[in-house]
Nucleic acid binder design. Structure first.
Lengths: 202, 202
DNA sequence: GTCTATAAGCAGATAGAC
DNA sequence: GTCTATCTGCTTATAGAC
């Protein structure tokens, strides 16, 4: 159990600081102090405050995309797949609140080029939902008129909890995941109960 | 059609600036310039940048609370009421994106006292949903195990669209309202279709 | 790789003329 | 009530010693 390298200590500190106070309200001194370093040490490892945000934001987007793709690959049955996806997507946002808050709310602080890159990851995430719901409609088990509209609403349901969720509260990531999974199935017209298969959380 | 008073020009400019860039990234010079005034003019009408945020945030919270209470009063039938509420709540967030963004995402920038005040309005909004769903459960027309959990998820669905909604896009506030209203009914176990009654938008 | 010291600029807020 | 000018402090980022 050795101490984390300085570079990762800084990105971890940046995640917490950006999540708590927002990018613009966070000072580079705040980040370096949280990482146990002097203000100047930050610039040995990162070119600028925006670059630090970009690293946090892009790696967070990629992690989230891989997570939802893994969840979408857990079952060939549309009903079970959507339940697993909504459970995993919700649990992820409840367990990675700090990182997800930076991912979701600090896009405007990125440079235009960096913003374009992460916008691509976001479209990829929407596409996973879109395809899963389309699959269920085509197989005749889902009843949905507006597939993109329902996709966005299901994604919103999970993402918005990073705005208010607090780990010390009564709700666990798994309990929220089960509620949202049931609401997802009901939203696409599946009336019977299907328990989500809980893939191991990282 | 006379020009708006300086005070309102400033709060309107602050809503746009805070919504576009966030509280901390917005400068008082940005606000006063948008309102067509010099930097010093802002302080004739508002004590500080935080006071300006507080006025925007509290009036926005109160407006939203009154809107959802009005929607909850449109029908005594739990099914029709929930449909009307989710339609109105969604349409409101799509038509008041800028103000709602400040309301939802800039709470951390308020002083602790101001934050406590708006937290009360937020609980009131949740309570309106909570009571509407409880009413449907007690009358035997809704099937919901976790009433607060479903309430929060329905609220999240509408609120999160201020994160991504753009008026120039293809979706109208009304089309989003109808999708969300149907998803709300399905989420509480109502399987038949009920069109939301559209109260006039302000 | 870390530190101290500091440069250069911009922020919120105020003073005082008109 | 609006302006110009300015104060004061804090920000990002860099220089250079160890």
């Amino acid at each position: 159990m050795t101490e984390a390298p300085a570079r990762k200590r800084l990105t971890d500190a940046a995640i917490d600081a950006f999540a708590e106070r927002g990018f613009h309200a966070t000072t580079t001194r705040d980040i370096s102090t949280r990482a146990g370093m002097s203000p100047a040490a930050l610039y040995v490892h990162h070119a600028s405050k925006e670059q630090l945000l970009y690293e946090v934001s892009s790696s967070g987007h990629i992690e989230c995309l891989e997570m939802i793709r893994a969840a979408a690959a857990t079952s060939a049955d549309p009903v079970q797949r959507l339940a697993n996806m909504q459970f995993a997507f919700t649990r992820y946002h409840a367990t990675h609140t700090a990182g997800a808050r930076v991912v979701q709310y600090e896009i405007a602080a990125l440079t235009p080029e960096h913003r374009r890159e992460v916008a691509g990851y976001r479209r990829d995430i929407e596409r996973v939902y879109h395809e899963a719901i389309t699959d269920g409609v085509e197989k005749g088990v889902f009843d949905v008129q507006d597939v993109p509209g329902v996709s966005l609403a299901l994604i919103s349901m999970a993402i918005d909890l990073v705005r208010w969720y607090q780990p010390q509260g009564a709700r666990t990531p798994e309990s929220l995941g089960r509620i949202h999974a049931q609401m997802a199935l009901r939203s696409v017209g599946v009336t019977h109960e299907v328990a989500p298969e809980e893939t191991p959380a990282d």
